[in-house]
């Protein structure tokens, strides 16, 4: 797997009059894990979704390995085919899993390999079953999502993404919809991916994961990227009062 990097330059995004992203600059380093943290509504998810152009940014640049995504030139949209080509190598995992309920776990993972990569069905299923084995679900391949726990569903979703052999993985609050006891199994799969050198961008409220697995942590508030540094600088010695106040609230909520 070839590691990828992302350069985000002066990205702005508006929803009508609402300024959702304000001149955001961020470098995602190849083979590293970047965690995006911050209060709800701060623009973390919006920024993440700009990276694969699921969300269209209005100005600025998002480059994947130097290639601008979404636009051929400023203001000129990229063709659908070219955009799909770029998305192939960017895996994404969603808060609500978004598995397709009418397909088994195996079919969910094989679908992209067949439709997008054009692999023959047998080979696609072989790779899908390898991906499911990797996330620890070798015995659940024939189950439909409704027959799986939240943690298992999210692991299928991760398998669906990694089966496409992406160079970059985006995680949008992957554990926020899970019961507390199921969070660990998903984080463990993510840690394994990180240790294999996958470039990862993770929007999360799991400060423990950010502290132990991230190579850099970016803090966002009200559409601005307030700071980006090593986990210890952001989480233990933050100099910005906005980060200090966010962490104070976090600690108060999690202490008992």
């Amino acid at each position: 797997m070839q590691a990828s990097s992302v350069e985000i330059r002066k990205v702005n995004k508006f929803y009508g009059p609402f300024h959702a992203l304000k001149d955001v600059d961020l470098n995602i380093l190849p083979g590293k894990v970047t965690c995006l943290i911050g209060p709800s509504g701060s623009g973390k998810s919006t920024l993440l979704r700009c990276v694969n152009f699921l969300e269209e940014y209005d100005s600025g640049e998002v480059r994947i390995d130097g290639q601008l995504i979404g636009y051929d030139a400023p203001g000129k949209k990229m063709s659908g085919r070219k955009l799909r080509e770029m998305r192939r190598s960017i895996g994404m995992v969603f808060q609500q899993f978004n598995l397709w309920p009418h397909m088994t776990a195996l079919e969910n993972v094989a679908e992209g390999l067949i439709r997008v990569r054009g692999l023959p069905k047998a080979e696609a299923q072989e790779r899908a079953s390898a991906a499911l084995t990797k996330v620890g679900l070798a015995d659940k391949m024939q189950n439909h999502p409704s027959r799986l726990s939240g943690g298992q569903q999210q692991r299928v979703a991760i398998a669906r993404a990694i089966a496409m052999e992406p160079r970059l993985m985006l995680f949008d609050e992957p554990t926020s919809a899970l019961d507390p006891e199921l969070v660990g199994e998903v984080l463990n799969v993510m840690k394994t991916l990180a240790s294999e050198g996958m470039t990862m961008v993770v929007v999360t409220h799991e400060m423990g994961f950010a502290a132990h697995v991230a190579d850099q942590v970016a803090f966002m508030e009200k559409g601005e990227l307030v700071g980006c540094d090593t986990p210890s600088r952001i989480l233990h010695q933050p100099d910005d009062p906005r980060i200090q106040s966010f962490l104070r609230t976090y600690h108060e909520r999690n202490s008992f």
Binding site: R84, G91, E111
Partner: peptide, 10 residues
């Protein structure tokens, strides 16, 4: 969205 993210066409 999940299909779009994986690179599937309309």
């Amino acid at each position: 969205e999940a299909a779009t993210a994986i690179g599937m066409g309309p």
